[in-house]
């Protein structure tokens, strides 16, 4: 049951909602696609919380690519041993995790303590921020505390191959049965977060303006072509 639902069906449901929902929102609800900001109401706490969180989550994303997407064989071929990898993962992941957690806590406090910010915070905003905080706290706990006190779990042999196998549509679900519970919760909640992306402010991450540095500074458009661009 656990194998079939949580490690086979559930990830695909979440992935489908993410992809279909995101395209639906972009195409049919385009005007709701933005990076909602309350900077106009409050700046000082935002500077601390937002910057810490966003840079932290970018580092955390890179860390997950290194730990989950890149197979363990690559590290072995490069001569990066298990000990060296875990040292790097704990240091880098721990710092990134703490940045995310502290940033999120600051952002939650800010949302509660400034009336102007609070009235403009929706259920979706609270949902996202709380879910992110739980996931990030679990991840940081796993990296900094669990790996020292219980076991330095080698997720590159179980979670990594399972996650990659989802993309080939031959999920190796049996790999996930034996992993520690805290890892299971972290993974399931993350997939739940992925599924919620199209319904929350998180869609703004797909709009990071990477083309800005290469485009012409001045933009001209003709009235005729305004709806084509």
């Amino acid at each position: 049951m656990e194998m079939i639902f949580w490690w086979t069906i559930f990830p695909y449901i979440c992935g489908t909602i993410l992809i279909v929902g995101t395209f639906y929102r972009f195409i049919f609800r385009g005007k709701s696609w933005y990076a909602p900001s309350t900077e106009i109401f409050e700046k000082k706490w935002l500077r601390f919380g937002s910057v810490l969180f966003h840079y932290g989550i970018i580092f955390a994303f890179i860390g997950h690519v290194m730990g989950v997407l890149i197979p363990i064989g690559v590290y072995e071929a490069l001569g990066v041993g298990e000990h060296l990898y875990h040292m790097g993962a704990i240091a880098g992941g721990g710092i990134a995790g703490l940045m995310v957690v502290i940033g999120l806590v600051v952002m939650i406090i800010r949302k509660f303590s400034f009336p102007k910010v609070r009235v403009h915070t929706t259920f979706g905003d609270y949902f996202t921020i709380v879910l992110l905080l739980i996931i990030a706290a679990l991840g940081t706990y796993m990296t900094l505390i669990y790996s020292y006190t219980v076991v330095a779990y080698e997720y590159r042999l179980t979670i990594g191959p399972w996650f990659r196998s989802l993309f080939t549509f031959h999920p190796l679900s049996e790999l996930m049965l034996g992993i520690p519970t805290v890892f299971k919760i972290h993974v399931i909640l993350s997939f739940f977060l992925f599924a919620s992306i199209p319904f929350t402010q998180l869609v703004h991450m797909f709009s990071f303006p990477v083309r800005y540095p290469t485009r012409a500074p001045q933009q001209y458009r003709s009235r005729n072509g305004y709806d084509k661009s």
């Binding site: 696609w33 933005y34 800005y212 933009q219 001209y220 458009r221 003709s222 009235r223 661009s229």
Partner: peptide, 30 residues
């Protein structure tokens, strides 16, 4: 303002030079 917009939502109209914000393209980067 046009040069500051990361998404290119702000533009100057060819016909009359009026500077406008494309509300579909604006992502609120501020």
């Amino acid at each position: 303002c046009v040069a500051s917009c990361p998404t290119g939502a702000l533009y100057k109209r060819d016909e009359d030079g009026i500077v406008l914000v494309d509300q579909d393209a604006c992502r609120g980067w501020r």
